[in-house]
Computed example of a mutant assay.
Amino acid sequence: MSSPASPRQRRKEARPQELLDAALALFVEKGFAATRSEEVAARAGVSKGTLYLYYPSKEELFKAVVRESLAAKIAEGAEELARHQGPMAELLVWVMHEWWQRMGCTPVGGIMKIMVSEARNFPELTRFYVDEVILPFCALLAEVLQRGVARGEFRPVDVESTVHVLIGPVLHLVMHQHSIGACGLGHGPKPDPDLVLATQMELMLRGLLRDPGQMPAAVRMRQPTDPPGEGGAGIP
């Protein structure tokens, strides 16, 4: 029987995640270019040298954050797609809802905003992000659409352009949340993410489904008179 790990050993095993958490927080707060490696180390409670033992550069640290917080979750969605046996409409609603809940409305969404604002200055990181995040997520949505068309559930559509139409509204919500919405202003548009997502999915499915009667029961566009938090996509 092995002896339990010592507090020092447990601390060492937890350190990579602590560094990733600190890096994510600082990247979201300051952006990639403005964040310094020593700041990440200080927030995680370690020396800069210790940080470099795990992540030899700020670029490698950023890549690790992307893999852990975005790429891994997209891979989970692909696994769910492989297992799914029911209607593709239900899966599409699930994918979009989970994308928002696990990434879009969390601090991880700030990484997406960084890529929009700083990609031009960091082409190598941009290529990495496209390969690890954008292409896999687009492929996931495309596979859902293609299966729906092949099964006769969805009417034939241009899959690539439909993927862009699906992504656009949620990406807009992310950009707002990490820009104007983060300023705490008392005026200006204040989109309700649940209502926007519910509206998007109802409109999308009315255009996609061959038989509107196959609309998933979970999709009900929340009316403006509904109290906040009620109605919406209603995905379990």
Rank of each mutant, 00 (worst) to 15 (best):
L171P: 02
F27M: 05
A198V: 15
K30N: 09
V28E: 08
G148Y: 12
K63E: 15
K73L: 15
V174Y: 04
L81P: 01
G110E: 02
E59T: 01
F62P: 01
G231L: 04
R206K: 15
A82H: 01
P156S: 15
A34F: 05
A89Y: 02
M115T: 02
L173C: 01
G188S: 02
I74M: 10
S37F: 01
V219S: 00
V163K: 03
M204G: 05
Y55Q: 12
K113T: 03
M88I: 01
I134H: 05
G207E: 06
C138H: 10
L145W: 02
V40K: 14
E59C: 01
V95A: 13
E59P: 02
A25C: 07
R11F: 06
G109D: 07
M96I: 02
R10W: 02
A34N: 11
K73I: 14
V95N: 06
R8M: 15
L53D: 13
A198M: 13
S161H: 12
R102Y: 06
A71G: 08
K63Y: 09
S6D: 12
M1D: 03
A72C: 05
A41T: 12
F62K: 00
P216V: 11
L92G: 10
T35F: 03
Q17N: 15
R67S: 12
L53M: 13
P7W: 13
K48G: 15
K73G: 10
E79W: 03
D226V: 02
E80H: 12
F32S: 08
M204N: 04
G109I: 03
D21A: 15
R36W: 09
E60K: 15
A5V: 07
H164Q: 10
V133Y: 01
A5L: 13
A217Y: 00
V174A: 07
E143K: 10
I74E: 12
Q9S: 12
K190Q: 11
V130D: 14
I235A: 04
R11E: 14
S3F: 10
S57D: 09
M115S: 01
G148K: 07
A182N: 06
A150R: 14
L140F: 06
L19R: 10
F32M: 08
V174C: 07
E13R: 14
E230H: 14
S37N: 05
E60I: 14
L173W: 10
M1T: 03
T106V: 04
I114K: 04
V65P: 00
A14T: 00
M112F: 07
D21P: 07
A182T: 11
D158C: 09
A33P: 00
P123S: 11
L135P: 00
E80Y: 08
M115D: 05
A233S: 14
G110S: 06
P228G: 08
A82L: 00
P189H: 07
G186M: 08
W99E: 08
P191E: 06
D158T: 11
P191N: 11
T50V: 12
R43C: 11
M115C: 02
A71R: 15
N121I: 05
E80F: 07
G152C: 02
R155Y: 03
L125S: 15
L53A: 14
V149Y: 09
Q177T: 13
H164L: 10
T50N: 06
G104M: 02
W100D: 04
D158M: 09
R67P: 08
